[in-house]
Design a protein around this nucleic acid. Structure first.
Length: 439
RNA sequence: GACCCCAUCGUCUAGAGGUCAGGACAUCAGGUUUUCAUCCUGGUAACACGGGUUCGAUUCCCGUUGGGGUCGCCA
């Protein structure tokens, strides 16, 4: 029986989860699930200043949202302090570490790990064979003079404790890897496999900074993205299944994922393509889920009110169809469905309502719609076509003013479907209001 | 500065010596449509540069250039 694969995600909770970071989590998760192994979670919360319960909550929420379920209990690094120090003692007694006052601020003695004085080589699962010469490897502090363990110590000891077999993490850790390998060997623990992921850069090809925005998981959620779409896009950023598939379900990604197909060049997340991807995933969503997502977004946007009839809401969703690419699209582009206080788009008004004869046509349409026995899309469609034929006008002349009158905008779903969804009362009163306003 | 990593259309990528260098997003031109979106058809667009190796290099090697990472008693 072979050793089961075990990966981990070990974020230090800082209040936000960066997409580069969550992408590492996704790869760890994907790899573990593909191999039938375990995906563990460790919170590196030793920086008490930043590691607030709220910050931890954010990490957990982001993972939960993306469906990154972990196996076993969460290990909080702060609980492992004794173990870290115990190992440091052992390294001290075996000569792999020594105490030293490194001076400077005069803080007293700290524990320094002694590098073995030989070249270190390892096979990176994505970057290939990497070597660091002995002279480029310096001893480093593992326990501060105040007695607290340093990152390297905690990281390695915890990975050993957790039985991690594959360390999949960001590119910025490759230099650390040589130190870590030396520690595994000094401790006498099996050295795990390492895979280092290239970073995700911004449109300028630089590392993301706070100025770039759009880089935290929570922001994508607020903007109305679907977790499956973000997951899919991030999985494809630096990895591909090898065929031309792009829109993939979680299961398909799990089935296809291997570390040897991870690229080693940095890449940038294209928001436009992400938007497209979101639309693709939205198409696969049930109308109920789409409605729930849109409603939640509208609540965040402050556009929701409990007087909105659920059936009407569903009808609007169906009517909008593929025009919804983001949950926030409904509130952003179709709020007129839900309020009488909708704005009139200036350009559309000028072009379609204030056009010669447009308001006269609108008056006629009002009469036509009032007289409609059944207020259905088919009926209004037929009535307007008959009207067009009778007057020799093009449908465009009839449709545009009406659209602007009832929605305030020149773009939206098919007019007749829209009228039916809105219902006679709403439509007639909107036309009257428009007439009195612009006449 | 030292050490290390990276380099295919604008972007994400396929490619592991011989391909018309493929796909997707974006873009452009048509078509469908009452608008927008969708959808359909077609087009523009890439192997950073210079040396090798080879009958033949996008692919292998070296160098150059460009980009990035790391050099803490941060993580």
């Amino acid at each position: 029986m072979t050793t089961p694969i075990r990966t981990r995600f070990a974020p230090s909770p800082t209040g936000n989860v960066h997409i580069g970071n969550i992408r590492a989590a996704i790869y760890n998760w994907l790899f573990a699930r593909h191999e039938g192994g375990e995906f563990l979670l460790r919170i590196e919360d030793t920086d008490l200043e930043r590691s607030t319960p709220q910050a931890v909550r954010t990490v957990l929420d982001s993972m939960d949202w993306l469906g990154l379920d972990h196996d076993g209990e969460v290990l909080y690094q702060s609980t492992q302090r004794e173990k870290h120090l115990e190992i440091a003692e052992r390294l001290l007694s075996t000569g792999h570490a020594y105490k030293q006052d490194k001076g400077g601020t005069g803080k007293g003695e700290c524990v320094v790990f002694r590098m073995p004085g030989k070249d270190i080589t390892y096979h990176d699962e994505v970057k290939g064979d990497l070597t660091k010469k002995a002279e480029d490897l310096k001893d480093f502090v593992i326990v501060r003079s105040d007695g607290s363990p340093v990152f390297h110590l905690g990281n390695v000891v915890d990975d050993i404790t957790m039985g991690v077999t594959h360390v999949i993490r960001g590119d910025d850790h490759v230099e650390n890897t040589f130190k870590h390998i030396a520690m595994y060997e000094a401790i006498g623990a099996p050295v795990p496999k390492f895979a280092h992921l290239p970073m995700i850069v911004n449109a300028q090809g630089k590392p993301y900074s706070k100025r770039d925005g759009d880089a935290y998981v929570g922001e994508f959620r607020e903007k109305g993205f679907l977790p499956s779409a973000l997951f899919n896009s991030l999985a494809l950023l630096g990895w591909s299944p090898g065929d031309d598939r792009e829109v993939m379900t979680r299961d398909e990604l799990v089935a296809a994922f291997t570390l040897d197909r991870v690229r080693s060049a940095p890449s940038q997340l294209d928001m436009t393509k992400l938007l497209w991807m979101n639309g693709q995933h939205l198409k696969a969503l049930s109308p109920e889920d789409c409605a729930a997502g849109c409603r939640e977004a509208m609540q965040r946007q402050g556009l929701w009110n409990d007087a909105i009839d659920p059936a009407y809401f569903r009808a609007v969703i169906d009517c909008m169809g593929e025009r919804i690419r983001l949950f926030t699209d409904l509130g952003d582009n179709a709020a007129f469905f839900f309020t009488e206080d909708y704005p009139y788009d200036e350009k559309s008004v000028r072009k379609r309502l204030l056009k010669e004869g447009a308001l006269d046509i609108l008056r006629e349409e009002l009469a036509l719609l009032e007289a409609l026995p059944d207020f259905t899309a088919a009926a209004s469609d037929a009535a307007l076509h008959a009207f067009a034929e009778k007057t020799g006008r093009g449908m465009g002349d009839l449709v545009h003013p009406l659209r602007v009158a009832v929605s305030g905008t020149g773009v939206g779903p098919g007019l007749f479907e829209m009228l039916e969804v809105m219902g006679r009362d709403r439509v007639l009163s909107r036309i009257r209001r428009t007439l009195s306003r612009f006449a």
